[in-house]
């Protein structure tokens, strides 16, 4: 069953008096129990999608979508309170930078305790309830792998190391027992060991708790190890999405191909000392977006038709937006 369904999400930002489409008709669906990876270069709008789902956008940014629904309920048309309730119970977000996303002047305990939904606390006197809250908080912190919970819980974020803060962010996201976890680059800038722990934790939660995960990252190796399906984003346009396996074997979009080729561990038959493949050019800035398919100027297969925005087409749930897809014959 589809829990989060996004169809043609467009986000417009005013820049120097002109409306710029930071996200252009992005489509994304998340099934129950699925780990979906959202991949793209930095600046491709991954975090903007996360923000648009959670609703934490500045009011002057314009969000339009054909569909932005959570279990069939339209997120864009519902009231603030309804959306808050969904964010409180069903969707949880882990942000990129843990130190910036934690209140610097509140202890970890205070911040974790306020995220615990009221329903989890048994009725009783205030001190009993406070105790129950603390117990839940310590439990969840232990679960995400923070070692010295009693020492860490009364500390301020700046007093702890980055990986404890990151684990704490995960604890804060999981304490409301959400159905969907949006992890916005949760392992950025981490050492391999800690990264591995966190990825294992997420994969484990997916199996044991039936947690769906939207995993936003550009770490292809981590993604291929855990994700079931993948959506590739380029410059605010979703270029291709489908099952992980199919996309690895036969990418339809030239950009996906380039992305896969840029990771050497993805091509086992790479000849030693051969030059690494990389696409020419760089990702354009928001002020200088090309018309039509935004990959156009960089694409090796581009032709005259690419100045028109390609429609989304699909072959067996493998969706792509390209006029001249690759590997079509063999699919």
């Amino acid at each position: 069953m589809i829990i989060l369904d996004i169809k043609n999400l467009t986000l417009e930002i005013e820049s120097n008096g002109v409306l710029v489409k930071a996200l252009d008709k992005v489509s994304l669906t998340i099934q129950e129990n699925e780990i979906r990876a959202l991949v793209g270069e930095s600046g491709s709008g991954k975090s903007l999608i996360v923000r648009a789902i959670s609703g934490a956008l500045p009011p002057q940014w314009i969000v339009t979508a054909d569909r932005l629904t959570w279990r069939g309920q339209n997120l864009l048309s519902m009231t603030r309170a309804q959306r808050q309730a969904i964010m409180r119970r069903d969707i949880a977000v882990i942000f990129q930078d843990p130190l910036a996303s934690l209140d610097p002047s509140a202890t970890l305990k205070d911040q974790l305790v306020e995220s615990i939904p009221q329903e989890f606390i048994p009725k009783g006197w205030p001190w009993q309830r406070r105790k129950a809250r603390l117990r839940i908080a310590q439990q969840i912190m232990r679960k995400v792998g923070i070692k010295d919970v009693h020492a860490a819980i009364n500390k301020y974020p700046h007093e702890l190391s980055l990986d404890i803060c990151q684990k704490f962010m995960i604890a804060m996201a999981l304490v409301s027992q959400p159905t969907l976890l949006i992890a916005d680059d949760p392992t950025r800038g981490m050492e391999t060991n800690t990264k591995q722990q966190i990825l294992t934790l997420l994969a484990q939660l997916n199996k044991t708790r039936n947690l769906s995960i939207l995993f936003v990252s550009h770490d292809l190796i981590a993604i291929s190890a855990m994700a079931h399906s993948m959506t590739v984003l380029y410059c605010g346009q979703s270029v291709e999405s489908g099952k992980m396996k199919a996309m690895r074997r036969r990418p339809l979009h030239p950009y996906t191909k380039a992305l896969m080729d840029s990771a050497p561990s993805f091509s086992p038959d790479l000849i030693p000392k051969s030059p690494l493949v990389a696409m020419d050019g760089t990702i354009p800035t928001l002020q200088h977006l090309p018309i039509g398919c935004r990959l156009g100027p960089r694409c090796p297969r581009a032709a005259k038709e690419c100045v028109q925005v390609p429609e989304e087409r699909s072959i067996n749930e493998h969706k792509y937006r390209c006029h001249y897809p690759m590997h079509v014959e063999s699919v």
Partner: peptide
């Protein structure tokens, strides 16, 4: 405008909270 206020909003806390 800080990140932690945005993250508090995403956690579904009420405005007064």
């Amino acid at each position: 405008s800080t990140e932690y206020i945005k993250s508090a909003q995403t956690r579904g806390l009420t405005a007064s909270n």
